[in-house]
Computed example of a mutant assay.
Amino acid sequence: MHRAAPSALPDLRRSLAEATLRMRPAATGRVRLGAAEIDAALSGGIDRAALHEVYAAGAGDLAAATGFALGLALRAAEEKAEDAVARPILWIRQDFVDAETGRLHAPGLNELGLDPARLLLVRARDAEGVLRAGAEGARCPALGAVLIEPWGEPRVFDLTASRRLALAAEGSGVTTLLLRVAATEAPSAARTRWQARALASRALEANAPGQPAFALRLLRHRGGVRGDVTEREWRVEWDRDRHRFAERSLFDRSSRTDHAAPLSRPLVPVSGDGQAAADGQDSGFRRTG
Rank of each mutant, 00 (worst) to 15 (best):
R24V: 00
Q94T: 06
R244L: 12
R93T: 03
S255P: 01
E205M: 14
L51Y: 00
A277R: 15
A133Y: 04
P262F: 01
R232A: 10
A260T: 07
A69R: 09
R191V: 10
D282Q: 06
L143H: 07
A182E: 13
R248E: 09
L267V: 03
V270Q: 13
T288V: 14
D158H: 06
V130C: 05
G280H: 12
L216C: 03
P107M: 13
V181Q: 06
G134I: 09
L219P: 02
R232F: 08
T101Q: 12
V270M: 14
R226I: 01
H243V: 15
S43W: 09
R118N: 02
E233D: 01
R242M: 11
A260F: 00
N110F: 14
L120S: 09
H243M: 10
D83A: 04
I89L: 12
L90R: 03
A27L: 15
E82P: 02
Q281C: 03
L143N: 06
G134P: 03
R87D: 00
L70M: 15
L218W: 03
G223N: 14
F96S: 15
W151P: 01
D228L: 11
E233C: 11
I46Y: 08
R222N: 09
A19C: 02
A26P: 02
M1I: 13
E233I: 11
